Amino acid sequence: MNSRLLRFSTLFAMLALGVSAQAGAVEYADVNLNASTISFTYNQTGSRIYGTFSKFAGDLDFDTAHPEAAHASLTIDLASIDAGSDDANTELQKPAWFDTASYPQATFESTRVKDLANDRYLISGNLTLRGLTRGVDVPVLLKAEDGIGIFVGELTLNRNDFRIGEGEWADSVVSNEINIQFRMVAPQR
């Protein structure tokens, strides 16, 4: 009788642990664009410059129980750039930089998500900018707050990989490394 009770207790405990692990899983979807941000920093003639993009669209399907099945995409309206001055904003839309007349958007499409533990993930995907597509790995931290998920990440782009800042701008006046920071907010599903 004791061995039967022990087996029942063990089975019950295993089932309870399985249920609690599933109960802890959270699904996030539908990026809240009003609460989300995309910004960037770079160096120009020794000064740190900060800027933002105000228009973008994001799509997210993320289940913490199955992050490997997650999908994320992002489309950025490059004409919505604010690099701190009207002159800079106008210059960045010209053919030497983003060439927004020919390439109005930058896009990111995830191809794989790896769980790094402790609410940290590595989202791999394809970034397309100026008609060029490059694979990127984006480390992301997920912060859960009051029924929403806040996905915070940063990556460094090499502007030469996308032919950004050609011609007279190809020298070292503007750093080759551009740091992109984002904060994507999504409610629980």
Rank of each mutant, 00 (worst) to 15 (best):
K55I: 01
N126K: 07
G147I: 03
F162V: 02
P139I: 05
R189E: 11
F40K: 05
E154V: 07
S20I: 12
G147H: 01
F182Q: 00
T37M: 06
H71N: 12
Y121P: 15
G46D: 15
F182Y: 03
S110T: 02
T107F: 01
D171F: 01
A13Q: 04
Q181K: 03
A65Y: 11
N160G: 13
F40T: 03
D161G: 00
S85R: 06
G167H: 01
G135H: 04
L122K: 12
M14Y: 08
G167W: 00
A101F: 02
V136W: 00
L33R: 08
F108M: 07
S85C: 06
E91I: 00
L11F: 07
T10N: 13
L5I: 09
K55S: 01
V19F: 08
L127I: 00
D99E: 06
A144C: 10
A16K: 07
F56G: 08
V113G: 06
A29P: 12
L33I: 13
M184P: 10
R130C: 01
A144T: 05
A79K: 03
V31C: 08
N34D: 15
G51L: 06
V26Q: 09
N2L: 15
F8W: 15
D119E: 15
L5C: 09
N34Y: 09
A16C: 11
S36G: 13
V152C: 14
S54P: 14
T90P: 13
N160I: 03
A170S: 07
N43K: 14
V152P: 12
Y121I: 10
A21I: 10
I178R: 03
L11M: 05
D137Q: 08
D137E: 05
Y28F: 07
A79H: 01
G165W: 01
S3K: 15
A72W: 06
G18A: 11
V185S: 01
F108T: 04
S3N: 14
S172H: 08
D30T: 09
T75C: 05
H71V: 11
D171H: 13
F62T: 07
I178V: 03
N179P: 05
A69P: 13
Y28I: 04
G125Q: 02
A79N: 06
Q181T: 05
V113Y: 09
S172A: 07
R189V: 11
D86V: 06
A21Q: 13
A106S: 09
A101L: 10
A13D: 14
D82W: 03
A144V: 11
A70R: 08
A83K: 01
V138N: 06
E145L: 09
Y103I: 06
S39P: 10
I164G: 02
D115S: 13
F182L: 02
R48S: 15
D119C: 13
K94L: 02
V152M: 12
